[in-house]
């Protein structure tokens, strides 16, 4: 029985192990100085990490990356939650609403970027409307939402794509809560807040947490939006990695890999800690209940 199990599993496991763990090993090896294809082999060395730490701009890159990721994920969660509640209230009578909001999920991020360029650039439609209304005199007077550090352009793209994603994840989770548990809690005399805190939240938390983590990890690793709409030097970490990787000096590629390995490690630890915390919270809840 067990052998048959592994037989069915092996193809997909092989692909995953080779291509995910394999590439991870490869990336780690390269960041530690093993790159014979560029004629470089200093394995093992930490010099590429030391080079990064030595540059003050890398700290700002990290700050920018985390800023975009945290702000966008948090706003997407809040707005997604509100949207999910609204959808729940509206119910299934209005099918078209359930179509419309999912549209951004279905298109590449680049489409969202195009929309933001046309609307929020300094020569974009919003700036022109502000000019028509007499609020500004020159394109420069319009807030620099794009091509600037900590600009809202990147966050707007993330929100356009991810609020629907959060809303959908939360909506489905909320739908999945059986009415009876709430009714039962009410019969047992639980207040509205208590029902929310002890019945709804524990049931929706795992689903929401996984959606939040997926968004966060994606936003940290995203390339297109910060590359196109960012302020240039210092870039976010993935863009920095890309610039290092396309540098004619091959030694820079190893630094690029070091950037990526650092990011990957950060994300894995974040996810691991988050899932640990959520498991502990769950257990605690079960005991206290």
């Amino acid at each position: 029985m067990s052998r048959q199990h592994w037989l069915s599993l092996s193809p997909v496991l092989l692909v995953m192990l080779l291509m995910t763990l394999g590439t991870l090993l490869f990336a780690v090896g390269q960041s530690l100085g093993y790159a014979p294809q560029y004629g470089i082999n200093h394995f093992p060395t930490l010099r590429y990490y030391e080079l990064l730490v030595a540059q003050p701009s890398v700290a700002m890159s990290l700050g920018l990356t985390l800023y975009y990721a945290v702000v966008a994920t948090f706003l997407a969660l809040v707005m997604g939650f509100l949207l999910a509640m609204a959808l729940l209230r509206v119910g299934r009578h209005h099918q078209w609403l359930h179509y419309v909001y999912k549209f951004p999920l279905m298109v590449p991020y680049l489409v969202g970027i195009a929309l933001v360029i046309v609307l929020f650039g300094q020569g974009g439609l919003m700036a022109r409307l502000s000019y028509a209304l007499g609020w500004i005199d020159r394109p420069d007077d319009f807030a620099a939402l794009l091509y600037s550090h900590y600009g809202w352009g990147i966050i707007l793209v993330y929100l356009w794509k991810q609020v629907p994603f959060m809303a959908l994840s939360i909506y489905v989770v909320l739908l999945g809560i059986p009415e009876q548990t709430q009714d039962a809690a009410r019969l047992l005399g639980a207040s509205r807040w208590q029902r929310w805190r002890y019945v709804v939240v524990p049931q929706v938390m795992p689903g929401i947490l996984s959606a939040v983590l997926i968004c966060f990890a994606f936003n940290v690793g995203a390339f297109e939006a910060p590359f196109i709409l960012g302020g240039g030097f210092p870039d976010t970490l993935p863009v920095l990695a890309w610039r290092l990787f396309t540098d004619p000096d091959y030694g820079q590629r190893l630094s690029g890999m070091a950037v990526l390995v650092t990011m990957g490690a950060m994300l894995l630890v974040t996810v691991w800690v988050a899932s640990l915390l959520s498991r502990r919270a769950n257990r605690w809840q079960r005991i206290s209940a």
Binding site: M16, G22, T23, Q30, V220, M263
Partner: peptide, 21 residues
Amino acid sequence: SLFTLPLIVPEMALALAFLAV
């Protein structure tokens, strides 16, 4: 949980490693 790895690892890391291999 092995299958959640690709969702967490930056796409850039995957892509560059694939390319090199």
